[in-house]
Design a protein around this nucleic acid. Sequence first.
DNA 1: CTAAATGCAAAAGATTTGCTGGCGT
DNA 2: ACGCCAGCAAATCTTTTGCATTTAG
Lengths: 129, 129
Amino acid sequence: MRFSKQRQIVLDILLESNDHLTADQIFQRAQEKDTNISVATVYRNLNQLEGRGLINKVNRLSTVSLYDGNIEPHDHLHCRKCLRLYDIPKKEVPNIIDQVAFNTGHTIEQAEIIFSGLCQTCKAEEMKS
Amino acid sequence: MRFSKQRQIVLDILLESNDHLTADQIFQRAQEKDTNISVATVYRNLNQLEGRGLINKVNRLSTVSLYDGNIEPHDHLHCRKCLRLYDIPKKEVPNIIDQVAFNTGHTIEQAEIIFSGLCQTCKAEEMKS
DNA sequence: CTAAATGCAAAAGATTTGCTGGCGT
DNA sequence: ACGCCAGCAAATCTTTTGCATTTAG
């Protein structure tokens, strides 16, 4: 992986900051350091850096929202092979809210969990080969 | 809440389906049932229905992605008052992966958790008033 | 009857892509 | 020199909004 001046700047901004930044915020900060950088470069670098595990992206599920008629509280499993999203009823998931609230000092009202891995079906197929 | 033909169709589509649907998929299915429905109506109805708790929206954090230089695995707390996103180190969070894998039969490799509630700071302010 | 909902088209916001030229190794 | 990377602008995709008209209760 090549480290251009721009890529380095994007990475530095993220490493220096303790916050979570939007691409646009990163773009603005980068402009202050380098008069000539484009949004496209910022996005391309963010994708590259994330792909190599150098940075983290929150909200990675997809760019579109998904809607669900199931309003019973539940979590999700995102299968990395078939990419399907499965519902996981809350009763299958140990409740960790009190423990985390105690450990962190925040007031926690809800937890929304996205599991990832292989669904039953894809796991079975993987076995065959 | 008024129940127009279009709103009913949008809701029915979600209730009939066991899947998670994108707004566009819902729009397409709705078109098959009602020649005259617009994307705008679909979106407006999805927002209304979600606001009243009749349907569920996944990926609710925001429409933009957030990037984070912290690649140590961690979860997040989204404060409903100041809207800030806090990192929660994994060591504060009980590991539930094995339990959920056992309960569901899926292979689970990772869990990404978004807690919501009140952060320490906002909680303290709430106390004063 | 009247507030709320619709359709349409345009706007807005986020992200990606094509192309051409430049830079890192 | 070669291929990766940048800049720019246009394109794409998702979602929202303004406005005039229709409709549910």
